[in-house]
Amino acid sequence: MPDTQAVRSRIKTLIVDALHLQGTSPSDIGDEAPLFGEGLGLDSVDALELMVALEKEYGIRIEGHQVGKETFTSVSTLAAFVQGRLAAKPS
């Protein structure tokens, strides 16, 4: 399983690529920076797009209605969620 830093780094790249963020590079995104509203300015539709990108990247299944909004608070909360799913994934 990839370590926390590797997952966070990959998620930042996915955010920029999957959401087509102009003028933002992965290194601009802090681990704890809010993704929504005042932070990176993402919206709930972005969260759904990002969810599918995470499914493809990590080979996990995520049902949108089973994931709380708090999961998408920041890169670090998202990384913790992904690592939890990877740990629960049958090998």
């Binding site: 999957a18 759904l48 797009e49 599918v52 949108g64 209605h65």
Partner: peptide, 10 residues
Amino acid sequence: CRSVIPRMLH
């Protein structure tokens, strides 16, 4: 709809 929408958005 809920099941296909995220993939269509992506």
